[in-house]
Every structure is written in structure tokens, then in C-alpha cells.
């Protein structure tokens, strides 16, 4: 118990989000612990993706977006005056539902963010390309064609490239928005394996529509419904003995 630091890696306190007049998230207080894989499940339009996009402030670009409540990263308010949004987005790596490789080579896709962050050393680039591709489990498949076009990769490979691209920045938190929604079971299994290994380095938040994936690939699970956090708990407990009626209904397929 003493090994776990008091502060969670990330934490929201009473987070309420509106887009115009529509309430997307209601009073969410949820913590992301260090080195855990937190899954977020729930039916469509329950606020899962909105929640993720709050964590790296990607919603800021939406002109209808308004928020109340706080989000803390390692104890620091991410909306505070000393927080640099650009740096924040490097600390919180995001992987999207649809893999979006930029229309360049595999190598360029990974070095882009480093170059923009001012890292110009070619040797560092090469090391990072190799280490991040290895972490994402893609190195062996692409090591001989790093300069070929990223869009020539298969869907599963593209998604692992997107993962590698984010990992190259060594983020403290990894947020994934239904990363396997368009992938076949084998590609899905590979990504789940990678997440298992990454847990030692990062905190992981995994939004998924696939409840089976949550039960396989997470330590704790949160259930969102219509913008509310219904229940959060150890994955095993939540799936076998949910405290809330609504969680049970969702898991047994009575709605959603």
C-alpha cells in the first residue's frame, strides 16, 4: 500500500461538459491510477469519447464546448495558467478510433512530433523510431521499409503505427478511443498484448464499445451512461458482480 503514491496519475473532479445547451458529461469524478489500464465502456453517445478528449484538451477546438469542474494531471490543474496545452498533449498521447497515418513515410510519421518539439538530432530520431515501433509490436514487420508510404500498411499495422507515433513522445498517459473498432480479431489481440506490456510505463485509458475487450484488457472498468459515471471498479468485480442495476442490464445486453 505504501508503494502507491497518494496522487493519482490523472483525476477529474466534478467534470461537467456542455456542447451548446446539450450536456455531454454530468459531474464526473474519476481517477486514473499510475500504471493501470482503465477501460471505459458504455453505449454510443454516453460521453466516453468526450471524456477522453477532455483529458488532452482536444475539445478546446470545438466552439460550442464549455466545461466546469477540474482535471488534474499529476496533481496539476491542466487548465491552470502555468499549463502549456501543447506540452500537455505531448504528455497525454491519444490514439483515435480510425487509424490516421499522415500521408508520408512510416519514419516521417514517427519523427514528425519530435521535429516539431525541436528535437533535430538524427540519431535520436533513429533510436526513437526503432524503440517506439518495437513497443508497438510493429518493428519486425516494417524495419526494412521505413521509408515506404504509411498508407500502404494494413489497417492493423496503421493503428500500431499510430500507437508508435504517440509512444515516441513517451507520454505519461495513453488514451485510446476505440482503437480496435475497425480491426480484425488478430490485430485486436496484438494491440491488447501491447497495452498489457505498456502498462509498466504508462497509465492507460481505453475507451471501447466492446465489453469483452474491457474484461480482457483492463484492470479497472468505468461504465458511462448518458453522460453519467454509473459505476467504476475492479474489472473482475464489475463484470461478475456489478453494484448497479443499470450496469448489470448493460452487460447482459438488455439495452445499448
Amino acid at each position: 500500500m505504501t508503494e502507491q503514491p497518494a496522487k493519482p496519475m490523472m483525476e477529474t473532479r466534478g467534470l461537467t461538459v456542455r456542447f451548446g445547451n446539450a450536456v455531454a458529461l454530468k459531474n464526473i469524478s474519476l481517477e486514473v491510477r499510475r500504471n493501470e489500464r482503465l477501460a471505459i465502456i458504455g453505449p454510443a453517445r454516453s460521453g466516453k469519447t468526450t471524456f477522453l478528449r477532455c483529458l488532452n484538451r482536444l475539445n478546446d477546438f470545438d466552439h460550442d464546448y464549455s466545461r466546469s469542474g477540474d482535471i488534474l494531471l499529476d496533481g496539476t490543474d491542466i487548465h491552470g495558467p502555468e499549463m502549456d496545452v501543447v506540452a500537455l498533449r505531448r504528455r497525454i498521447g491519444m490514439v483515435y478510433a480510425v487509424p490516421v497515418p499522415l500521408p508520408w513515410s512510416i519514419r516521417e510519421n514517427i519523427t514528425y512530433a519530435m521535429r516539431m518539439a525541436g528535437i533535430r538530432n538524427r540519431r535520436v530520431h533513429a533510436e526513437k523510431v526503432e524503440s517506439s515501433l518495437k513497443l508497438a509490436g510493429l518493428w519486425d514487420e516494417v524495419k526494412d521499409r521505413l521509408d515506404s508510404h504509411a498508407q500502404d500498411l494494413s489497417g492493423g499495422q496503421q493503428q500500431r503505427l499510430c500507437l508508435a507515433r504517440v509512444l515516441a513522445l513517451e507520454p505519461e498517459v495513453l488514451i485510446l478511443d476505440e482503437p480496435c473498432s475497425g480491426l480484425d480479431p488478430i490485430s485486436t489481440a496484438r494491440i491488447e498484448d501491447v497495452l498489457e506490456e505498456l502498462k509498466a510505463r504508462q497509465s492507460i485509458v481505453l475507451v471501447t464499445n466492446n465489453t469483452m475487450q474491457a474484461s480482457r484488457a483492463s484492470d479497472r472498468t468505468a461504465f458511462f451512461l448518458m453522460g453519467e459515471l454509473v459505476e467504476v471498479g475492479e474489472t473482475k468485480q464489475l463484470f461478475t458482480a456489478p453494484r448497479e442495476e443499470r450496469t448489470n442490464d448493460y452487460l447482459t445486453g438488455r439495452f445499448g
Binding site: 482536444l58 500537455l88 498533449r89 483515435y96 516539431m116
Partner: peptide, 13 residues
């Protein structure tokens, strides 16, 4: 639009 989102998400201005 997704290209822009990716770039912002990677901490680019």
C-alpha cells in the same frame, strides 16, 4: 480534418 486532429494531438501548434 483528421490530419489536423492528429497533429494537434501530438502536441503540435
Amino acid at each position: 480534418q483528421s490530419f489536423r486532429e492528429v497533429s494537434f494531438g501530438l502536441g503540435c501548434t
